[in-house]
């Protein structure tokens, strides 16, 4: 390890030109973490529940698109009249994507209504294990059906890369996927910011975050709003899952990996803060790349764990969060 750091220090000049590339790819991957963290934050903001099974629902989103895709393509080919006309404007990928987001919205809604709501009054531990168990069961079903092979996510467009800029003969590249990811996440952040701060829905959610009991006293249907928020959180997570599937492949095990990075982004940004989650995700993405190249690729895996531990030890409320510790 020490030798590696020494070699990095001596090769600093040679390594410097790759820094822009690391930042750009770090942002690209960070956007993915940000989206996952954003979906978990939305869930947390309304229900004060941290969904430990969120990673597996993210994974399910990708599989939902994979399963829906052939159906959509088939239907569009068969229906000649109205749908056929529609199909000439709307690519089947987009249709399948929107459908899968709806499916995951329904999943989130049902999961909360059937499994979470009845035990919401119980201890936090039951909630945590319930979420984990739901995730585990989802993973098991997917693995049983699709786990024997590595399936490819359907692609809406071929992959291509662009040189963003050039520094001393070393180019910095970005793929079309990454650009679209960044755009989608920024739009999602803006939309959720507007929804949570400017609309009545956002005010209700804020009230529920403050006190669920109090809000039900003033006539808010807490269960209904909680269901909705779970649906929204899950479908946002599913969007992240689709991105993950496009970047990697369909893999039933990405859930755990995703969950911890989402947690890290949330912790760094501060629990409950929307833009904190996004900025946290970006910082972790960049940090992973920089540590990976300048010290050792072994550090890529533990960057998020180190961030979690250091942030909670040094500044538990994160960058933009409210108080996180209990004062005794």
């Amino acid at each position: 390890m020490i030798e590696q750091i020494q070699s990095v220090l001596t090769n600093w000049d040679a390594m410097l030109p790759v820094l822009p590339q690391l930042v750009v790819s770090g942002i690209a991957i960070g956007m993915l973490y940000a989206l996952i963290a954003l979906s978990m934050t939305i869930l947390y903001r309304a229900t004060t529940v941290v969904n430990f099974g969120h990673g597996d629902l993210v994974m399910l989103g990708a599989y939902a698109l994979f399963i829906l895709m052939p159906m959509v393509t088939f239907n569009i080919a068969v229906e000649s009249s109205a749908l056929g006309l529609l199909a000439s404007f709307v690519p089947p990928f987009l249709v399948a994507l929107i459908l899968s987001l709806f499916v995951l919205f329904a999943m989130g809604y049902i999961i909360h209504r059937v499994f979470i709501w009845p035990i919401l009054k119980g201890p936090h531990l039951s909630l945590a294990l319930m979420a984990i168990a739901i995730g585990y069961a989802v993973r098991g079903v997917i693995r049983k059906e699709y786990g024997k092979e590595v399936l490819q996510m359907p692609r809406p467009f071929p992959e291509q890369e662009f040189e963003v800029f050039n520094w001393g003969g070393i180019g910095t590249y970005m793929t079309l996927d990454e650009m679209i990811f960044c755009g989608v996440v920024i739009v999602m952040l803006l939309v959720s910011y507007i929804v949570f701060s400017k609309t009545r829905f956002g005010q209700i959610v804020q009230a529920m975050f403050q006190t669920q009991r109090g809000s039900s006293l003033v006539g808010i249907n807490v269960m209904h709003y909680n269901n909705l928020i779970w649906g929204v959180g899950c479908s946002l997570g599913a969007l992240g899952g689709v991105m993950l599937g496009l970047a990697l492949a369909l893999d039933p095990d990405v859930g755990v990996w995703t969950l911890l990075r989402g947690f890290a982004a949330m912790t760094l940004g501060g629990f409950g803060s929307l833009y904190g989650a996004v900025i946290g995700g970006l910082i972790i993405g960049i940090l992973e790349k920089v540590l990976g190249v300048f010290i050792s690729t072994a550090f890529i895996e533990i960057t998020c764990y180190l961030v979690i531990i250091l942030v909670l030890l040094i500044r538990p409320k994160g960058l933009f969060g409210q108080h996180a510790t209990l004062r005794i």
């Binding site: 790759v18 690391l22 893999d251 095990d253 990996w257 790349k289 190249v293 890529i300």
Partner: peptide, 14 residues
């Protein structure tokens, strides 16, 4: 090293 589930190999390739 490249962990399972890595979506990006930028660091390794660079």
């Amino acid at each position: 090293a490249m962990e399972r589930g890595s979506t990006d190999a930028t660091a390794q390739v660079l």
